[in-house]
Computed example of a mutant assay.
Amino acid sequence: MEVAAYLTEKAHSVSVVELEEVPFKKFFGERVGRAIMKMFENNRVKFYMQTEVSELREQEGKLKEVVLKSGKVLRADVCVIGIGATPATGFLKQSGINIDSKGFIVVNKMMQTNIPGVFAAGDAVAFPLALRNNKKANIPHWQMAHIHGRIAALNMLAHGTEISTVPYLWTAMFGKSIRYTGYGEGFDDVVIQGDLDELKFVAFYTKNDEVVAVASMNYDPIVSKVAEVLAAGRSIRKRDVE
């Protein structure tokens, strides 16, 4: 989506093909996803949802057309394929280091693997997330990699420091910034304040009546304030934001 937003000023036309019915549905929920989708449509981006690419056609060694499963044919000079990422940890399979079913290196609160003196950090690890009762999580974002490296280094120097940071990330599209804090995986409801149509809102993601993540656009500094509350070890209930 960031690439699509960037290309609107460079390309004749931009199309997004997606399996879901709205972009960002798993991450931001359907209502926020639709608001962002509308923002993209207002900037000339076309969406082809709930379908996938079945064929790429070339002419004289260059991409010419993208054929969708629906039969729709899109003229294209460039195709950017976002298929996710898997950790390149295969080389550790015979090492004795504990790796989970998804290929992530499992570490404790000190970023240490199951082998004493061996530490791991960054996108390739699953670590205990304090604000979700030490559930093992993988968060491939630069802020998290920074703190991982710091905690790992401190513990290599025998400082006995545990990771307790709150995830905080942001993205910018069409000059508008979306900020996000917490860990919303598995949220069961979304409480929205503000105006989605005006792209000025804050969305509270809840699970079992507890706020587990918050996203906002043009609603600063609410996300930073929530991050401070979570970092202090305090919880926010659903009724507090309703």
Score class of each variant (00 low, 15 high):
N218H: 03
K62P: 05
M39V: 01
M144T: 10
M156K: 13
V22Q: 09
G160C: 04
E210T: 15
V53P: 04
V125Q: 05
K64Y: 09
N114V: 09
M37H: 02
I163K: 01
N138D: 09
E52F: 13
E185L: 04
G33A: 10
H141C: 02
V190W: 07
A121R: 09
F174S: 06
S15C: 12
G96F: 07
H141D: 05
V106C: 07
P140V: 04
P140M: 05
E41T: 14
Y48M: 13
A5I: 07
K102P: 00
L68H: 11
Q143K: 10
L154Q: 14
Y168Q: 14
K200S: 12
F127D: 02
R239S: 11
G82R: 13
K25L: 07
K25F: 01
M110W: 00
K38F: 07
V125L: 10
I236T: 04
N208W: 12
A35Q: 12
S15W: 03
V73C: 09
T51C: 15
E65Q: 13
R132T: 14
A76G: 15
D100R: 08
I192F: 06
L92C: 11
R34M: 04
F27A: 13
S15Y: 11
D123I: 09
K200V: 13
R239W: 06
E60N: 12
M144S: 01
L199G: 08
